[in-house]
């Protein structure tokens, strides 16, 4: 029981802290928020010109931040290998 109380307390503190953080955030969906102004406009403006890919998400995923995506694929690879590594047994038949 005390575990639950303890985790409830931790949750409350964490939540309160997170909400405290939101107080200074730009309003939701604000087109003038820093996130919308600093880095991302270039992706939208230049995606067709630089990568001939109209879908900005795809061009960012696979080109501008392609290295992240390689990491992401590696994560998936890791998970697959990990599952095989952990659960496969020679005598197993699926």
């Amino acid at each position: 029981m005390s575990l639950k109380a303890l985790s409830f307390l931790a949750v409350l503190i964490t939540g309160a802290l997170l909400i405290y953080g939101t107080l200074d955030m730009p309003p939701w969906g604000d087109p003038n928020a820093p996130a919308a102004l600093h880095v991302s406009p270039r992706y939208i403006e230049k995606t067709v010109e630089e990568t001939a890919t109209p879908n900005a998400v795809t061009s960012v995923v696979a080109d501008y931040r392609g290295y992240d995506t390689m990491g992401e694929t590696t994560v998936i690879f890791t998970a697959g290998i990990a599952c095989i590594f952990l659960l496969r047994r020679d005598e197993d038949d699926y």
Partner: peptide, 9 residues
């Protein structure tokens, strides 16, 4: 699009 990209990952 940037957050979307991050979130795909």
């Amino acid at each position: 699009p940037l957050p979307h990209v991050l979130m795909l990952t």
